[in-house]
Design a protein around this nucleic acid. Structure first.
Lengths: 160, 160
DNA sequence: CTAATACCCTACTAATTTACTAAGGATTTT
DNA sequence: AAAATCCTTAGTAAATTAGTAGGGTATTAG
């Protein structure tokens, strides 16, 4: 179990998808704009999320990404594991005999802890965040139609 | 909240200290040998642990490091926070108005999660690991006197 | 008192990972 | 057919992690 900014990006992006799930697919360009992450980097993250079935890509105009399964079946642990490839926990891969079998002990303890952490994060599903009262309030404000209309008037670029 | 190999090194080293607490100070050289981490790197980690009062250095021959407070008052979160300086959670530091106030939402949600994670790790103290039955068994095998005797006969280095 | 032990500190370097860029497909809708 | 959007690969710059080097300083044993 590892946890870095990469994992955070993935989790927040997935939260975004979960919140707007009923509004049809969310484009990576949207997430890129709104969360300040580069498009290509997002594409890399989503490649991994797609491989593990956590999201589903919809091609063509009007396409984007959608959750690969119901929000209540996607845990935070699933997301983190998908993108933050796990730490190689010990130097004595599996065999408990490093250092004459004496103090590899702490590796054993770390594994215990790591497992507990995983279970904790596995117990938190995306659906929990959609229920957050803050979310309901804000996501109503920026309803899908509103954002679609907004997209019809893109920011003016410098005259050529 | 961030979690990398650095944090793992610190946590396992602290477990080591906790297990051998009654045997007097543990030297960094010991930990370095047994866990395969370089001495200087350990010194860097322990500098941070010392600054936050989690450990206490004992100088001179027979010295080493000792827990700075009782094992049940040191949580895994304490250790991780001390060495793995926390992730800068958002681009909109504190002010919730990034991206026209609309989708900074996910940052809020991430903070929620991060806080929950912290609380979880804060609820796990070092003393829990000492109670582990595996630990009692193994640490009895390598009693302090035994390891001290062993230290009097260091491995022979190549003849010069 | 001296020498050995082991903490303590600073600065540098190598390796790895993260974040990003570039550039070109492949699909699907309009 | 053209536009939108996913999809893929390859490369690169920045940051972080891990480790080296080399010098202290305090304390204890002899």
């Amino acid at each position: 179990m590892k946890l870095s900014t990469k994992g955070r990006y993935a989790v927040t992006a997935m939260m975004d998808l979960a919140i707007h799930d009923r509004d049809g697919p969310v484009t990576l360009a949207d997430i890129s704009n709104c969360q300040g992450i580069s498009l290509s980097y997002l594409e890399q993250l989503f490649a991994k999320l797609r491989q593990t079935g956590l999201v589903e890509g919809v091609r063509g105009p009007g396409g984007g990404y959608r959750l690969g399964k119901p929000a209540n079946q996607i845990s935070v642990a699933d997301i983190v594991v998908a993108v933050d490839e796990s730490i190689d926990s010990t130097r004595c891969k599996g065999n408990l005999d490093c250092n004459k079998g004496e103090r590899c002990l702490t590796h054993h303890l770390w594994n215990d802890l790591s497992e507990r952490l995983y279970e904790f994060l596995d117990g938190i599903s995306l659906s929990e965040f959609i229920k957050d009262p803050e979310v309901r309030k804000i996501s109503r404000r920026m309803d899908s139609t509103a954002s679609r209309i907004a997209n019809m008037f893109p920011p003016v670029s410098k005259a050529s």
